[in-house]
Amino acid sequence: MWEGEGSVVELGEEERWQLLRHNSLARLALSAAGEIDIFPVNYYADGETLLLRTAPGTKLLELTVNSHVAVEIDGFTDEDAWSVVVKGTARRLERQAEIDEADQTPLVPWIPTLKYIYVRITPAAITGRRFERAPEPERY
């Protein structure tokens, strides 16, 4: 699988979605008024979109100002590390039928807070890489 020192392998679409489906913690990056914010979020990946829950506050306000977002997840083992980045558009779910459908997913807040607002992220692009973890090569 690995070729040469410090190899990086691009992940295929199925592997990117598999990693998204089998994880649930990410960092959400968004921008409003020229400022970039990054928020830890838990999410649910249904295979086509990402769903998250939030409450009124800075994150929701920034999502309504600028719906273009990036979501990043990563992980590692002793042998390798990986990263998946989703860039897309976020939209607050407004219709009751959408909210009822979202209520049926396994998405629940990680902390005991009321997060009753659903946001769906529709990807425009998904990238992913796997990195070989190995000792640093000799410098000299």
Rank of each mutant, 00 (worst) to 15 (best):
E79S: 08
T122P: 05
Y116K: 15
V65D: 02
T58V: 11
A125T: 11
L19Q: 11
Y118E: 12
T105E: 12
V85D: 03
A32E: 11
A33W: 07
W2Y: 02
I117Q: 14
G6E: 11
L60W: 01
G12M: 10
F39D: 09
N66H: 05
P56W: 09
L11A: 04
A81K: 06
L61R: 07
A26Y: 00
R133A: 12
P123D: 11
W17H: 08
Y118K: 02
F131L: 15
P109A: 05
I73D: 00
G57N: 05
A45S: 14
E14Q: 14
E98W: 00
Y43K: 11
E136S: 12
Y44N: 15
E10S: 08
D100M: 00
A32Q: 11
V8Y: 00
T64C: 09
I73N: 07
L11R: 04
A134H: 13
E14D: 13
R21S: 12
E3V: 15
T127E: 12
T54Y: 00
V119K: 08
E13L: 05
W17Y: 05
I73Q: 10
W110C: 09
E94S: 12
Y140S: 14
E79Y: 04
A29H: 01
A81N: 08
T127D: 09
P40K: 00
E101F: 02
A124M: 01
R120K: 15
E136R: 13
T77V: 07
R91Y: 02
A33R: 14
V108C: 02
I38E: 01
T89E: 10
E48L: 03
G34T: 05
E98I: 03
E35V: 13
A32Y: 05
P109W: 03
M1S: 07
V86A: 01
T77P: 00
R92C: 10
L93E: 12
Q104W: 01
H68F: 06
L25S: 11
E3Y: 10
W17G: 10
R53G: 06
G75S: 07
E98D: 15
E48D: 14
G12F: 02
A81R: 04
E15K: 09
H68V: 13
G75T: 07
I126A: 11
A32T: 09
P106D: 06
Q18M: 12
S83F: 02
S7W: 05
I73A: 03
E3L: 06
Y140C: 07
V9K: 13
R21V: 00
R92S: 12
N42L: 04
L63Q: 01
A55H: 08
A29S: 11
D74K: 08
V69G: 04
L30C: 13
T113W: 09
Y118V: 14
F39K: 02
A55M: 15
R91N: 01
W17D: 10
S67W: 01
P106I: 03
E138Y: 07
W110S: 14
L107I: 04
I111P: 02
N23H: 15
W110R: 07
V119A: 09
N66G: 06
E35A: 14
D37R: 12
R129W: 05
K59E: 08
P56M: 04
E10Q: 10
D46G: 11
L93A: 09
A32V: 03
K87E: 15
L63F: 02
P109Q: 03
P135C: 10
W2Q: 06
E136T: 14
D46N: 15
E138M: 09
E138I: 01
I38Q: 06
P135K: 11
G12H: 12
P106K: 04
